[in-house]
Simulated scan of single mutants.
Amino acid sequence: MMKRFACVLSICAMVLFVLHAGAQKKKTDNLQKPMAGPRAVVLRVTWLYVAADLNSQKMDRVQIGREMVIAEHNGPWMRVYANTDIQLEHESPDTPLIGSPDSIPPPVSGWIEAKGVVIETTPNGEQILMGEAANEESLANDPRGPANAAKSARLLYRRIVEMFPNSPLAPEAAWRAADIQWQIQKADSASRPSAKERDAYLREQMDEDEMKKVIKFYPHTRQADMAAFELIDNKLCGDWQGQEKCPEKESDLYEKYASEHPDGPRTAEALYAATYRQAVLVDMFSADGNDKNANTAKGRAHELAGWLKDKFPQTDYAGRAAALAFRIDQGVPVYGIEHE
């Protein structure tokens, strides 16, 4: 009786093991990509067909910049797996710049014409994508350009980073993709009623993930310096509402940036922004009858203007800072309305 009971337990354990192994294998199989092959991207809106025939059923449109994997060739046709591009809005800064395979929806398989397709083995492929992305970005700035030109440019820049990660163009492409998203979100944030809120946390914030990834994966580069400058936007006040603490805080942010990025491409702009806010503080403190703090702000504005003159004498920002210093010396208001 005991032997029979032990045998039954053994059989049950074996069945459970097989079922568990089968479930694990099924789960693993589901995570695998349906086809391995060279990655590619289209430079024009292209129809996806059921078969390699223009008369076959159309499945979907492959948009500019959409990522694909090529499964096979058939003359002037390619069978591809096209991934749906999604906005990775809440990734950790530690997530690779190109995203996680698990975050991509199942790809759609079909046939496309091979015209206007750049493959990761295409000679000078990254230069072609960079040029096409720049074209789309230029169209986005044209009122007569396509409505989705900015998105197309962003996707093409992202494809450069993914398909040609070791290219010298990758840092610039990563920065431009991040900047396009940032500017779109910034414009949307500025259009909301909350944009007038004084405190930054009360406003719609721009997603910082891609900017932070540019800094993380391309440290000590021009692109990282520019990304760090953009991140200041999320810390600025909306409407100052006549409160000294806003320009004080913002001046500190810009000065800190200038100190940490002394030779960056946006350092002169940061110094001017800090100079302007110190000039504003002169007017605010003077209006409140706080001459001591007004004189301190005046002295700091002169120091910053001098920093600009010494470090970036050929820039417009140096001249603009000098003009601010002149105005505060002459008692001409920078902020508010002048009363004679």
Rank of each mutant, 00 (worst) to 15 (best):
A227H: 07
E172N: 01
K235Q: 14
F217K: 02
R222K: 15
Q205G: 06
V214W: 07
R203F: 07
K151M: 14
R154H: 03
K212M: 11
R198H: 11
D199I: 14
S194I: 12
R176H: 09
E204Q: 15
R198Q: 12
S191N: 09
P193F: 00
M163D: 03
I160P: 14
A190N: 08
F217D: 12
I184D: 07
R159K: 09
M211G: 14
M206Y: 05
E172G: 02
A178M: 05
N234H: 08
K212H: 09
A174M: 01
R158Y: 02
D179V: 11
D199N: 14
Q223I: 00
A200L: 10
I160N: 12
H220G: 08
M206T: 09
Y157F: 12
P193Y: 02
M211D: 12
R222D: 10
D207G: 05
K186R: 12
E162S: 11
E172M: 00
A195C: 01
Y218K: 03
P165G: 06
R176E: 12
Q185C: 03
E210T: 03
A224D: 05
L236C: 00
R158E: 15
E197T: 02
A224W: 04
D199P: 00
L155F: 11
E162T: 06
S189H: 10
K213R: 15
A228T: 08
W182C: 05
R192Y: 09
R222H: 05
A195T: 07
R198D: 08
K196N: 15
A173I: 02
L156F: 06
N166R: 08
H220E: 13
S189Y: 07
V161S: 06
P219G: 00
K196C: 12
E197R: 11
W175C: 00
A200P: 13
I180P: 01
M163V: 03
R176P: 02
R203A: 01
R198S: 09
S167F: 03
T221M: 00
R203H: 06
A187L: 13
S191T: 09
M206R: 14
W175R: 04
E210F: 09
S191I: 10
K213T: 01
V161Q: 01
E204L: 14
P171Y: 04
Q183L: 15
K216D: 09
F229V: 06
A187F: 13
A174I: 00
L169S: 11
K151G: 11
K216T: 12
K212A: 06
L156H: 07
A227T: 04
I232T: 07
V214H: 08
E162P: 01
M211V: 10
A228M: 07
A178I: 00
K216F: 05
W175L: 15
S152L: 11
K196M: 15
K212T: 02
T221S: 11
K212Q: 13
E172Y: 06
W182S: 09
S167C: 03
K186D: 08
L236R: 08
A153M: 10
R159I: 13
A228Y: 08
R192A: 07
I184Q: 15
S152I: 09
E204P: 12
D209M: 14
Q185F: 02
L202T: 10
A173R: 04
K213D: 07
F229Q: 07
A195Y: 05
R154M: 15
P171A: 05
D188A: 12
A174Y: 00
K235E: 10
Q223K: 00
V161A: 10
D179E: 14
W175F: 15
R203C: 00
Q185G: 11
E208W: 09
M206K: 08
L231Y: 04
F217I: 09
